[in-house]
């Protein structure tokens, strides 16, 4: 995990370090159960194939959200505070595949109450197959003394 990233070290167009991870059946099932998702397509291969018409069990969305969070906060450090995430699921991720996360800073902006936001485009792909994209809005500390987690009420506008 990075040390605390401050807004001054970020600019539009900046790339986040890629993260590659080999997905196994354990990855899928552990992720589903950690997120209390008991639906059989995330642990029962026969169900996934015969009912859902896909080739295997596949990663569930809530756990993918946790992967996206990890990817973003690995970059920001613990002072980075998520404001908003919008996922677009295009394809599934199956055991035996390597998923790779990539991210780009689309924009850096300061809102009316002085909070600095990085808008990111983050994607997870398997080979050249884009599986999920995620537009992320994350608050960054303006400097080493700033802490976005201290923002409440009207001072927090995600």
């Amino acid at each position: 995990m990075a040390a605390n990233l401050t807004a001054g070290k970020v600019e539009a167009g900046q790339k986040l370090e890629p993260l590659a991870y080999d997905v196994t059946a354990t990855t899928v099932i552990l992720g589903a159960l950690a997120s209390r998702d008991w639906r059989p397509m995330h642990h029962d291969r026969d169900f996934a194939i015969n009912r859902n018409g896909v080739r295997d069990i596949f990663m569930n969305t809530p756990n993918l959200a946790a992967w996206f969070e990890r990817y973003v906060t690995d970059w920001t450090g613990p002072r980075g505070r998520l404001g908003r995430m919008k996922f677009r699921m295009k394809d599934s991720i199956f055991p035996g595949e390597q998923m790779v996360f990539n991210g780009t800073v689309e924009k850096l902006e300061k809102d009316d109450v002085g909070c600095t936001w990085a808008n990111l485009n983050v994607e997870v792909a398997v080979g050249d197959r884009l599986c999920t994209s995620c537009a992320v809005r994350v608050a960054l500390p303006a400097d080493e003394n700033d802490n976005p987690w201290e923002r409440k009420g009207d001072r927090w506008r995600p």
Partner: peptide
């Protein structure tokens, strides 16, 4: 368990 499942080491 969730942090472990995605290897999230955020302190």
């Amino acid at each position: 368990t969730t942090c472990s499942s995605v290897e999230n080491g955020n302190p």
